[in-house]
């Protein structure tokens, strides 16, 4: 049976690893996710044959990646995840009392070339690292893993309003950080 795993790893291992790495951003976690996927694939052997092997394995991996992200969140105390300050007041560094922008957003351009993209990625990564833990966690789930809001709320035990406010705050901080650190278009 394990000759299957050999073939799968040889043909799809690199792709699966990159898929996991693009979402988990950690080489060890990405390796673990591939391992979990292989274990699950061989245990259940649910390959139906109506899709490619790669699609089937990627489907399993997707679940594993989200599971690992959830686990990371569960390891933090829940009080640490709910941003109690994330009310309207928390936007005071961006707006004046009458609701006008303190600094008007500038335009920035999408990086086109591979080199520019990797520079953009490192700026974006650095900006994400600066986010408070809880904001980073919810932003990753929503905008990087594209998890449904409903599931995020269930997972974090917060209300949709909580989630919207936190995502608003995270995006606001990130786009400001990009504006300051990425070359303007």
């Amino acid at each position: 049976m394990h000759s299957n795993v050999n073939d799968w790893l040889n043909e799809h291992g690199d792709y699966l690893y990159r898929f996991a790495l693009a979402r988990l951003k950690d080489t060890h976690q990405a390796e673990d996710a591939v391992q979990e996927t292989m274990l699950a694939a061989i245990k259940h052997n649910s390959f139906a044959g109506d899709s490619s092997v790669r699609t089937w394995l990627t489907g399993i991996l997707k679940h594993k990646v989200v599971d690992m992200q959830r686990k990371l969140i569960r390891e933090q105390p829940i009080s640490d995840l709910i941003d109690l300050d994330a009310g309207e007041e928390s936007m005071d560094d961006f707006f004046d009392k009458t609701g006008h922008w303190l600094d008007k957003p500038q335009s920035f351009d999408m990086p086109d070339h591979a080199l520019e993209q990797s520079q953009f990625l490192s700026v974006l990564d650095a900006c994400m690292q600066k986010l408070p833990k809880k904001l980073k966690a919810i932003f990753m789930l929503r905008d990087v893993h594209e998890m449904e809001n409903e599931n995020i709320c269930k997972e974090l035990d917060i209300t949709p309003t909580n989630a919207w406010v936190m995502l608003y705050r995270a995006r606001m901080v990130l786009r400001k950080c990009l504006e300051m650190n990425w070359v303007k278009g």
Binding site: D14, Y17, A22, S107, P111, Q117, L124, R171
Partner: peptide
Amino acid sequence: RFKKQLNLLRVALQNIRTNMENNSAITL
């Protein structure tokens, strides 16, 4: 411009992901 920034942020995250998925230099 803010709206454009958020859209770009989203598209950039998707692009970066796709690029990494297709980057054959990264191997297990």
